[in-house]
Amino acid sequence: MLLAIDAGNTNIVFALHDEDKIIHKWRISSADSRTADEYMVWLSQLLNFENLDASDITGAIIATVVPQTLFPLQLLCRRYFNCTALVVGEDDVNLNVNVKLPNPAEVGADRLVNAVAAHKRYGGAMVIIDFGTATTFDVIDEDGDYYGGVIAPGVNLSVEALSMAAAKLPRVAVEKPAKVIGDSTISAIQSGIFYGYLSMIEGMVERIRAEFNGPMKVLATGGLATLFNEASDVIELVDQELTTYGLFEIYWANQK
């Protein structure tokens, strides 16, 4: 089985692949100081629950946007799974994606992995919206090459910042309010967050399409993708497993 590790700013996702499908997926909060041994204590319990053992894992791949997590995750794979993990972004790992930017190294590993998966699974020119710690818009052309993108503060990050900066404003759940004009503090904040981000998404996609000057699909991923998809016709596809499948594709392409 293949262990795919996606280390983000908020969570680290561990996914097991077998026979071209995801069979288990777990997540743990990101922490710069966590050691390889701590990861294994946690992960071994989850493997045991599924009647699996460390010896069942025969390969691993890592994508991280938190540099401090890379060494302990690599050590985890070497020490406990007896394998050397492929690392997205290292010179010997081929993504089969041309990054059409002046400095390709600036693009986060997760964004490139999403580009690989989106082109492989859906094809064509595309805007990929990822609702993570940041809300990102990534553009790939019809050949699957990375064209550029947009980075905005994430939805939950904005909610947290608002409650921290304004003493009298509570932290609210991100959900679609019944109407745009709020009749209470909570509903007003929910409207500002939800409809504000919805307007940003729709407006940004319109601007990207106009600048790209060609037909484009719009694909969303991340925790809030379904919520915003239900409220707008601009999002055409939702794929919550996009990054994980991208890691899977990259691993096997490099084995070949």
Rank of each mutant, 00 (worst) to 15 (best):
K21I: 11
Y80R: 03
S187C: 08
A60V: 01
D183T: 14
G214R: 13
R111H: 07
E90I: 15
V234G: 04
T226R: 14
M164Y: 11
Y251T: 02
G149F: 02
W26E: 07
L169Y: 01
K100G: 04
V65S: 05
E249I: 13
Y197K: 08
A178S: 14
Q255L: 10
F14R: 07
L95N: 06
V41W: 10
D183M: 11
A188I: 11
Y251G: 11
G192I: 08
K100L: 14
L169D: 01
I57E: 00
L43D: 08
L162G: 00
K168S: 11
I57N: 03
V97G: 09
L46V: 07
V234Y: 09
A173R: 11
A166M: 03
G59V: 00
T185F: 14
N103H: 14
F81K: 08
L47V: 05
A253R: 15
R78P: 00
K256A: 02
L224C: 09
A109N: 09
D53Q: 13
L157P: 14
E202H: 10
S55A: 14
G59R: 01
A60T: 07
Q255A: 04
K100S: 07
L162P: 03
D233F: 08
D53T: 10
D141H: 06
G203I: 12
Y80E: 01
V205W: 10
N156Y: 03
G108Q: 09
D110C: 10
D145H: 10
D239G: 05
K179M: 15
Y195E: 08
L2I: 06
R121G: 04
N114E: 13
S29F: 10
V180Y: 12
V116Q: 12
V155S: 06
T58V: 09
L247C: 07
M40W: 12
G246E: 04
D145P: 08
T69K: 07
R207I: 11
V234C: 08
V205Y: 13
E38D: 00
V87C: 07
N213R: 15
E175Y: 12
A54R: 09
V172P: 00
T135H: 05
G192W: 09
S33D: 12
D130Y: 03
R121P: 09
Q45T: 10
P72N: 01
I62W: 00
N98M: 15
R111P: 09
N9Q: 03
E160G: 08
T221H: 06
P72I: 00
I193F: 13
N114F: 04
D141P: 09
K120P: 03
F248W: 15
V99C: 05
S44W: 12
G154Y: 09
S163W: 02
E230L: 11
A117P: 02
A105D: 10
G182W: 00
A134Y: 06
E236R: 07
K256V: 04
E230H: 14
G132A: 01
